[in-house]
Amino acid sequence: MTGEMPTVESDSSAVPGTENDLVASVIDGFDGATVTEHATASSATVYHQVSVSVDDWVSVVRKAKNAGFDAFVDLYAVDHFAQAPRYEVGVNLISMENNQRIIISTRVPYDDATVPTLTGVFVGANFYEREAYDLIGIDFPGHPDLTRILLPDEWVGHPLRKDSSVGAIPVQFKAGSVDL
């Protein structure tokens, strides 16, 4: 019953029409938007990942909210390092009426790691964008209070970037003595 399936490309015949309609209505009119369908542990439900350009980012999310994806769940950032564009920012929304989940993501390059803020669409994006700024170093212009949230204010660097080390220190065995 936990039928997990690998990710498959969106196929209109594989899912009921209403689900695709809702996602299709969100990206309708946005060039370059692609949809990927993901299976979940629940065999009955899938979620769709929509990739959009950073210019359409706020518009698509606002449109998704108006289309029924009105519950904010999550906002994440990923550092793909060797790939270009390097950073991925995604927002996870659900439509409780239609029991649908959508992840809208965008990619930004290293030299311009700025994504317009979503706090004007969902107030809840506040802490999540601060976390993405703190750990990955994405700039969210328009955010009312873009400061570090998890790390101390005086911290330098963004630890979840791939070029940032784990920061492990050698384990010291203090009680023993070593003969060299």
Binding site: L151, P159, S165, V166, G167, A168, I169, V171
Partner: peptide, 13 residues
């Protein structure tokens, strides 16, 4: 006592 399993940037070891 020692940082435990989290030997990383965030924790005092």
């Amino acid at each position: 006592s020692s940082g435990g399993m989290f030997n990383n940037y965030a924790l005092v070891q």
